[in-house]
Design a protein around this nucleic acid. Structure first.
Length: 647
RNA sequence: GCUCGUGUAGCUCAGUGGUAGAGCACUCCCUUGGUAAGGGAGAGGUCGUCGGUUCAAUCCCGACCACGAGCUCCA
């Protein structure tokens, strides 16, 4: 057989030759330095036989980054081995450490264990030490293809491995990788020796994880590690994590007094403090302006609804485990509303509609309540009571596309306004395996097709994800990451043929007959709570001028400037700006520091010179100082900045 | 919900089987100042809650509550 090298040369090799053999054929030095190989573009190790005619390029220390998946994986095995040695050293017998899965993840690896006694975070440095020792031992890795029975015999006492092996698809070759006395079921690829692995790794945390992700299964202990090609990259990564913690909306929310989660009020039920309320109300004002311009009509609906409403809509059976228990009043059951759509549907149905009236666009900042498992709750990003910037568009089939595109346009405007660039567009379609969906097949297919057409037309990059649809229709979601790297769905657009059907909605067409309207559910922010949480992290609490809870603080140099300071305050307030005087007894320097820490965009310093000339000395965050600025000019400048929603 | 961890002053955190401490913030006094902390004094805590062990618990044990990381689901 032969393989093709990057320079186009053919290399003849005996049948069954590996990348190691190929490297050796090129030169002994390369064989020594080789870590792995790219074979037809895929990452391979040196131990796996090469297919005939493959494109092969050998990876060495110089290609560490390209081979990351490979050495991270091997480091995962090294950790797994180290944990075994750790327990053996403490007198636990061979086999008392059982292993679940241990894949490579972004920036590192994890491994699930079933341990005789749980590992503590304090134990991790000790495990790391053993890992370094295993690297120093420079153990050779070997790869073995085995039969299923041999594989089962290799892990007689490990029920997890037994289950994994039994569940492997028939056509898969079962392989075992070993280093020293450690052997694991693994498909690879792996580094050739532990001595070549980068030492820039760190075990980060442990946590629980269900075997195969199901809460019906036993809980294993998962150990997370990160690993990089160089110490510098590891340090950078750790620094980034530090930075992320600094931006965490839960921390900033407290520091900047934006919101409050109070156990006595209830978990997952955030309250907005005055500062956070300013930001939130600005968001609402922004979106309302857009909605008015786009022909939406506001509606307001109550926070509870009769259970019958949700039986009709289909929410009740499908969402029963994520709703608050119904309240019984006068022998009727009421539910805290988990969604606004049923109420809006009833508003649509409250009078006859003509084709001329459509589209009807009903918008509400509607507060909804959903019962989330307590372990799911998280700051503002996962709560039990939240307000959606919800709207429902009822339209004719011929209007659907234009309406969808307008909503898409609005959503893109939202993302742009808040400078959210790291967004993923996700088309959620049905999971063919699941039966949680309502409505008929043809409508689903139509709706899915229309969404995909629209996003394609707009040219947004998107992914299609089966199983991510709502129970009544497919949707387009906007997904962003928080500072810890977790993904959160923000805005959503959903095309729905089913609720109109369930509620028997109609309009009278040109032909005088009744027709069924189509609904679009849409929420560009998604939930104001979650959006705010993401926004706080996005701006690191440093809101743009138009959103800042306090836009300017007037700082008098001494008490004799207080009168003028208040005049500055009055002048700016008259322009609708959020300004106050810092009249405390601190020195000016301390007041500047306090304002900086509170992230107030503008500090207006006034002393003798300023009072005399009706000026202010302007110090703006990130923009330096301007001295001798005319007060009236500044008021106009700031008013314009506010009106234009500039930073 | 489950596994593990955490819970001490408004905030950030020390600490001890013999009923508690720092810095910042707060109040008062002195200082009236020119672009990131002027000085001093004072006040503030049922050490998350409830039980247990003990002569004695904030500390040890248990349950509960809340928060955090993760597993599963979603705006």
């Amino acid at each position: 057989m032969h393989v093709v090298l990057p320079d186009g040369k053919q290399l003849d090799l005996p049948q069954g030759a590996t990348a190691r053999d190929a490297a050796a054929a090129i030169g002994p030095r390369l064989a020594q330095d080789a870590l792995g190989a790219r074979v037809d573009g895929l990452l391979h190790d040196l131990l796996t036989p090469l297919p005939d005619g493959a494109q092969v390029s050998i990876l060495t220390k110089r290609n560490l980054a390209d081979a990351a998946e490979l050495w991270r994986h091997t480091l995962g095995h090294v950790m797994s081995q180290a944990v075994g040695e750790y327990y053996r050293a403490r007198g636990y017998p061979e086999g008392s450490v059982k292993r679940g899965v241990g894949p490579v993840i972004e920036n590192g690896f994890y491994q699930d264990f079933d341990l005789p006694v749980p590992l503590k975070e304090e134990d991790l440095p000790e495990i790391e030490k053993i890992m370094h020792d295993i690297l120093a031992r420079d153990l050779e890795l070997s790869r073995r293809e085995v039969s299923r029975d041999e594989a089962l015999a290799q892990f007689p006492a490990d029920p997890f491995k037994q289950e994994l092996i039994r569940d492997l698809p028939e056509d898969v070759t079962v392989t075992l990788y070993s280093q020293g006395d450690y052997t694991d079921l693994c498909r690879g690829p792996h580094a050739p020796r532990t001595g070549v692995l980068p030492k820039a790794f760190k075990l980060m945390s442990t946590s629980g994880a269900y075997w195969r992700g199901s809460e019906k299964n036993p809980m294993l202990q998962r150990v997370y590690g990160v690993a990089f090609a160089t110490q510098k990259e590891l340090d950078e990564h750790l620094h980034q994590l530090e930075e992320a913690r600094r931006r965490d909306h839960r921390k900033l929310g407290k520091e900047l007094e934006l919101f409050l989660l109070d156990p006595l009020v209830g978990k997952g039920l955030p309250m907005w403090l005055p500062n956070g309320t300013v930001v939130r109300e600005e968001l609402v004002r922004f979106l309302r302006e857009q909605q008015v311009a786009r022909g939406y009509q506001g509606v307001i609906t109550p926070n509870i609804g009769n259970l019958e409403l949700y039986k009709t809509s289909g929410h009740y059976p499908y969402y029963s485990d994520s709703q608050f228990t119904p309240i019984e009043v006068d022998e009727e059951q009421y539910m805290l509303k988990p969604m606004n759509c049923p109420h809006h549907v009833r508003i649509y149905a409250s009078k006859p509609r003509s084709y001329r009236d459509l589209p009807v666009r009903l918008a509400e900042f509607g507060t909804v309540y959903r019962y989330e498992m307590s372990g799911e709750l998280n700051g503002l990003t996962r709560v039990r009571g939240f307000t959606q910037d919800d709207a429902h568009i009822f339209c004719r089939p011929d209007q659907l596309k234009a309406e969808f595109l307008d909503v898409l346009d609005l959503t893109v405007l939202v993302l742009r306004t808040f400078d959210l660039k790291d967004v993923r567009f996700r088309v959620g379609v049905r999971d063919p395996e699941s039966d949680k969906y309502v409505g008929d097949e043809a409508n689903w297919e139509l709706a899915e097709k229309q969404i995909i057409e629209a996003v394609t037309e707009v040219g947004l990059p998107f992914t299609i994800e089966p199983g991510d649809a709502a129970f009544y229709g497919p949707k387009l979601d906007f997904v962003v990451r928080d500072v810890i790297g977790r993904e959160w769905q923000l805005g959503t657009i959903q095309v729905d043929y089913n609720l109109p059907e369930r509620f028997g909605l109609t309009y009278v067409g040109e032909d005088g007959q009744e027709h069924r309207p189509i609904m679009i559910h849409r929420a560009p922010f998604g939930s104001l709570e979650r959006f705010m949480g993401i926004l706080i992290e996005h701006y690191a609490g440093d809101f743009p001028f138009w959103l800042a809870p306090q836009q300017a603080v007037v700082i008098p140099i001494s008490d004799r400037h207080l009168d003028y300071a208040h005049e500055v305050e009055r002048t700016l307030r008259a322009q609708g700006l959020r300004v106050s005087v810092d009249a405390g007894s601190d020195r000016m320097n301390a007041k500047i520091r306090a304002a900086e820490l509170r992230k107030v965009p503008a500090m207006l310093i006034v002393g003798d010179k300023e009072a005399e000339g009706r000026e202010v000395s302007v110090r703006e965050r990130g923009r330096g100082e301007r001295k001798g600025v005319a007060l009236d000019g500044l008021a106009g400048e700031y008013a314009a900045r506010n009106a234009n929603r500039e930073n």
